[in-house]
């Protein structure tokens, strides 16, 4: 699957886990771009077409909520899956209202990612 993915997380280990899991589910052909902050993600989205953004919520500087708001305001077209440790029900509700297509609880697992990508029609089971 030739997809360009943007993996946004301030934690190196989380980016690594997310990219490994994404490759396991989507295959080795995907291209992963890393962003270490919300600001970094928006800079990438300004110059690069991204098929799917995998976004953390709790980051220094711009939070995941700020990134989703900016993406919406700027009219950037990118499907976004939020992967976060913030498991309060209102967090999920808010990110979906801000335009994310899905919310997955950290730590990311192959099963949770696969089932969400199938539900969104990105892959077919």
């Amino acid at each position: 699957m030739n997809l360009t993915l943007l993996v946004v997380d301030d934690s190196k280990i989380s980016r690594k886990v997310n990219m490994t899991t994404l490759r396991e589910v989507l295959g080795e052909q995907i291209r992963c771009i890393e962003a270490v902050s919300g600001e970094d993600a928006l800079a990438t989205l300004a110059v690069q077409k991204v098929d799917l953004m995998v976004l953390d919520l709790t980051m220094p500087g711009m939070s995941g909520y700020d990134v989703l708001t900016a993406v919406k305001t700027r009219g950037i077209k990118v499907r976004t899956i939020v992967i976060s440790a913030d498991i309060q029900p209102l967090a999920k509700e808010r990110v979906l209202q801000l335009g994310a297509i899905a919310f997955i609880q950290k730590p990311l697992s192959v099963e949770s990612l696969k089932s969400e990508l199938e539900r969104q029609g990105v892959i077919h089971g």
Binding site: D10, T58, A85, I87, Q88, K106
Partner: peptide, 26 residues
């Protein structure tokens, strides 16, 4: 990251107690 995940669970406990939304910092 481990503390972040633990914070998320503790934050959910607080959110439930207050029936509200909790902002969390790194």
């Amino acid at each position: 990251e481990m503390v972040n995940i633990a914070m998320g669970k503790a934050g959910a406990t607080l959110a439930e107690a207050f029936s509200g939304f909790v902002h969390m910092r790194v």
